[in-house]
Design a protein around this nucleic acid. Sequence first.
DNA 1: TCGCAATTGTAGCGAGCGCTACAGAATCGC
DNA 2: GCGATTCTGTAGCGCTCGCTACAATTGCGA
Lengths: 193, 193
Amino acid sequence: MARKLTFDYDQALDRATELFWRKGYAGTGIRDLLKEMEIGEGSFYHSLKSKRHLFLLCLARYDETVVAKRMRLMASAPDAGAGIRAFFTHMFDYLDDAKAPSKLCMIAATVEEEVLVDPELRQRAAKGLKDLEAQFASRLARDPQSPSARIEDGALAAILTTYVQGLWRMALVDYDRGRFEQQTEILLGSLGV
Amino acid sequence: MARKLTFDYDQALDRATELFWRKGYAGTGIRDLLKEMEIGEGSFYHSLKSKRHLFLLCLARYDETVVAKRMRLMASAPDAGAGIRAFFTHMFDYLDDAKAPSKLCMIAATVEEEVLVDPELRQRAAKGLKDLEAQFASRLARDPQSPSARIEDGALAAILTTYVQGLWRMALVDYDRGRFEQQTEILLGSLGV
DNA sequence: TCGCAATTGTAGCGAGCGCTACAGAATCGC
DNA sequence: GCGATTCTGTAGCGCTCGCTACAATTGCGA
C-alpha cells in the first residue's frame, strides 16, 4: 500500500556482511556501509534499524553460508576422521583464498573486539563457539568406528574447538599452510582421530 | 636544568598498563588514561609522546612482568612436562584471579583489534607469539629425558602455542577452570608431554 | 636573583562516530 | 485523481576521538 524498496535488500546485506567480515564491527562505520551498500542514510535507518541490528543480520548470513558449508562438509564425510580433516581443509582453503574478505572467521573475530561489552553480541559470539564444539562432538559421537575410543568425545571436541580458535589467531599474524597442515595432522594423529 | 616531572613516571606507566590490559587499545581513550594516571593533557603529550607510544611502553612492561614470570616458571621446572604444566597452571591461576584486569592476555588481545592495521603494533603482537613458541621449543629441546620423542619439538611447540591462543579466546567467552584443566591434561597426555 | 629550559594546564581543532528530524518522492487502495 | 502510507535524501545533532598551540609555571645553573 505504499512505496517499494528501491534497492536490493539481499544484495545490500551481502555487501554489508563482506564489509563487516573484512574490517570488523568497530572498524566499519555507517558511512562505509552506506557507500558499499549503495543506499542512503534514510533508507538505512528505515529498513535496517541500526548498525547493531544490521550486524546481527550479517552474522546470521555468514552462519548460513560460510559456516554451514564447513559443517556440511564435516557431516557428510564417511567417518569422523575424514570429516574433521575436511573441516580443516575447508578452513585452510579459505585462508589461501586471496579474494577472501580477511584472514579471519567472522564469528571468531566477534569474540574479541569491544563487542564483548554488548551483551547481545557477546552472547551471539559465544553461541558460535558452542555450536562449533557441538558439531565436533556430534560428528565424533555418530562415528560407527568410534576412532578415538581413548578420549571422550566431549573432551576431544573441546580440544579441537580451542585449537581452531587458536589457529584463527595464529593465521592472522602469519599464515603458512604447509606448517599449519603439518602441525594439525600431528595433533589429530596424537588424539587418535 | 629545568623543571622536574611532578608525577611518578613508573606508577603512571603501571596504571596505564592496567587500563590498556583491561579495556584494550581501541577501547581506551586518552581521557581515560589521563584520569587513571592522574596527569594532565600537557604532561601526557610532553613525556609520553602519543597513545601509540605509550601503548608500546605498556606492552613492554607487561612482557617484563606477567609474561616473564610465566616463562620463568616454565624454565625452572625439573623437566619439560612439569614446565609446560606450570605454564598452564600460572595461566589458569591468573584466569581465576578476580582482581585481574581482564580474562585476557594483553599480547594475545593485541593480535586482534583493528591494531593490525598499524604495522608497528602488528609486528609487536606477532613477536609475542613467536616468543611464546620459541620458549616452548627451547623448553622441550633442553629436556634431558626428551619426553616426547615421537613428535618433533618445533611442531609440538607450534601446537601448544596455537592451543594457548585458543584458550585465551575460549576463556573470554566462558571460563571453567575444571574443564580447561581436564582438556589440557588430555591434550598434553596425547602429545606425550 | 635572574634567565633559560623543561613541565604543566587550558582551550580548542578537525574529523569521525551513530543516529534523528523532517520534508519530499513514490506507490498503493479507493 | 485523492489520501494514506511507506521509502528516500539532506542536514545536522551531540558526542568522542587523538592531538596541538600556547601561555603560565616551576626549578635549575650562573
